[in-house]
Design a protein around this nucleic acid. Structure first.
Lengths: 126, 126
DNA sequence: CAAACTCCTGAACAGGTGTTCAAACGATAA
DNA sequence: TTATCGTTTGAACACCTGTTCAGGAGTTTG
């Protein structure tokens, strides 16, 4: 649409048009941005975040352990885990009648670690 | 609440209780998890993600440039930028009658970069 | 001054999201 | 087999969220 034909608004400025055009090439596409937003949105819930950080520390936990760690019902935990599992963020393993969950991706591990660092530095800055 | 008194559910298993307790100490608190989720939720919207990645590449852009880059109304962009500005993720600078936005935090820059890498590796893996 | 331009704000509406509830699945134990 | 445990599922509900719309700041130009 406008990504190709555009450049009609802001017609009073020429110096920045080149920069906008150059940015578009290196830019993530709308589709990529949507998928990135999907990833972030999955981490953007208190329950899911707590689950993920619990798994980051413990390595592997069953649902009942996770339900104890986070303060929500087992049903809510299960729903949360389903979203994370479908997205490939966590993986599960059955042992008897319990199911153990773990983080499935090294990048996500780094992401969680980096974000926690960001938060704690922010607090220092006040 | 249960974080202190708990340990009553899952009473049939003793071996994992120690691990759960140990995890709780190193774990992010519920408050930290909420703040981390707040951060992720802010990145978890296609419009805001596109804006942030545009700023990641361009360094600094005014609202009209951002409106051109992303395919939404200037009003939606303004609303999105307000959330990001309030959270300290972007910073603004006035020059004449336009306002230039930029990423305000190095950690967020790394976060965006790492996430983009994650996505592109995921695609490779299929 | 008024007009044009860039950007912001508030209210309102449609759509998505997380929780709870009731029920059911698969696996072990009696 | 039946009972119980651990976990999952689907529907229903209240809640939050992002967009649009109409209007208004603040700034430069005529």
């Amino acid at each position: 649409m406008d990504v190709v034909t555009g450049l009609d608004a802001c017609s009073t400025m020429e110096p920045d048009e080149a920069r906008v055009a150059a940015t578009r090439e290196r830019l993530v596409t709308a589709g990529e941005a949507t998928r990135l937003a999907d990833l972030f949105r999955l981490l953007g819930d208190p329950t899911r975040a707590q689950l993920l950080y619990a798994l980051l520390e413990a390595g592997e936990l069953c649902v009942c352990d996770l339900t104890e760690t986070v303060e929500v019902s087992d049903t809510a935990v299960s729903h949360a885990l389903r979203l994370l599992r479908t997205a490939g963020i966590v993986a599960s393993r059955r042992a008897g009648r319990m199911i153990y969950y773990r983080l499935a991706d090294a990048h996500v591990r780094m992401l969680l670690d980096l974000s926690r660092e960001h938060l704690r530095h922010e607090i220092v800055k006040g």
